Simulated scan of single mutants.
Amino acid sequence: MPPLVHGFDWPDRFVIDTVGEPGDRTFFLQARSGAEVVSVALEKEQSAVLAEKIEEILDQLMSEDGNPFSIPALAPDGLIDHDPLDEPVLEQFRAGAMSLGWDPSTAQIVIEAYPVSDADVEALEASDPVELEPEEVLQVRIPVGTARAFAKRTREVIESGRPVCSLCRLPMDSPEDHVCTLPDGFQ
């Protein structure tokens, strides 16, 4: 059976944001077109890698001779979205695998998120892994300016969490109470 595709071509809104307090936040990838809203839970690390890879693709395209797709170097001011997630935030699924692509025919970044499932974990642990068809997928296609703004906002959301210790690189609940556990040989 083919997967249920939550498709958003040129969405009205596409953001990553969180629910909860730093140290206990849940990250969500949220797309909206009209009244249709889909929210997918994901890990902080997935959010960071997604923003980084979008920037890499845009930078590579921008460096092409003559910048044929008019890739902006910075996020256009009018496209940066600082609003909270659309409420209520109802988790459609938790993202496992994600893919990122470029459609030159429409000059859009294509983002796909697939749910993580128990079957995925079992297949990864099996000695002869089998390819599984996902039950559903979130597919979002955004233009280059929106992609820059999405990446900028995502980095801001990630950085708004707990501060990171400059020595051990672990998040600190409180800089005053942080006990750094450095590897042997470091002081």
Rank of each mutant, 00 (worst) to 15 (best):
G34D: 05
V49L: 15
R148M: 11
E112P: 05
P3M: 01
P2N: 13
C165M: 00
V121E: 09
A41M: 11
L29W: 04
D173C: 08
P68N: 09
E36H: 13
S166M: 10
K53W: 14
V137R: 09
I16T: 08
Q92W: 07
R32M: 08
P3I: 02
V179Y: 03
L170C: 04
A73Y: 09
L124H: 14
P163V: 00
W10K: 12
D118A: 11
E133F: 14
G23K: 02
A41L: 08
S39E: 01
T181C: 07
L124N: 14
A48S: 13
A147L: 09
V19E: 12
R141C: 14
A119C: 06
F28C: 01
S99V: 01
I71C: 12
A151V: 04
G101Y: 01
I57Q: 07
I71T: 11
P104Q: 05
Q187L: 13
T26P: 09
P115L: 08
D120H: 11
E125W: 15
A147C: 10
F150I: 06
L138E: 02
E125I: 12
I71K: 02
D83K: 01
D128Q: 14
P171W: 05
E36G: 02
T26V: 15
R155F: 15
P129W: 12
T18G: 10
E159Y: 04
V157L: 03
G78I: 00
A73M: 03
A149I: 01
P143R: 07
T154M: 08
A123V: 11
E64V: 06
I71D: 06
E55M: 10
Q60H: 14
V37F: 03
Q187T: 10
A151R: 09
G101F: 07
E87P: 12
V38Y: 08
S105I: 04
Q30I: 07
E21T: 12
E91V: 08
K152S: 13
Q187H: 10
E131C: 01
T181H: 05
T18V: 15
N67E: 04
M62Y: 14
E131T: 06
